[in-house]
């Protein structure tokens, strides 16, 4: 089991080292870390964030302009 996790992380490191970074970033929300406080909704200048199926915040990628304001304000550091 631990081996599987190590493989995953190694795969990630390979992808990280071997792949070029996409020019514009993309922001997403880790539902495991989000506490549904809604702070990000109140700061997003594009009205791009709303609560999704399980009550956790979700970013609508078609509206997001990658300003990064939400990552700065999230108290649970759930945005990446």
């Amino acid at each position: 089991m631990k081996r599987r996790l190590v493989y995953m992380i190694l795969l990630g490191i390979l992808l990280y080292l071997g792949c070029e970074k996409l020019s514009n970033p993309e922001y997403n929300i880790d539902a495991n870390a989000c506490n549904s406080c809604g702070e990000c909704i109140q700061i997003c200048p594009m009205d791009a964030i709303e609560f999704g199926p399980d009550g956790k915040a979700v970013i609508d990628q078609t509206k997001c302009n990658q300003c990064g304001k939400c990552i700065t304000i999230c108290p649970k550091d759930a945005i990446h």
Binding site: M8, L11, E20, L22, P25, A33
Partner: peptide
């Protein structure tokens, strides 16, 4: 706990994999 999330994409035109984001917590 350890959480790892990787997002990547494959561009057909350039036949190349790009990394979008990595998050290790």
């Amino acid at each position: 706990f350890v959480t790892y999330i990787n997002r990547s994409c494959y561009d057909e035109d350039q036949s190349q994999i790009f990394r979008i984001s990595n998050m290790l917590r």
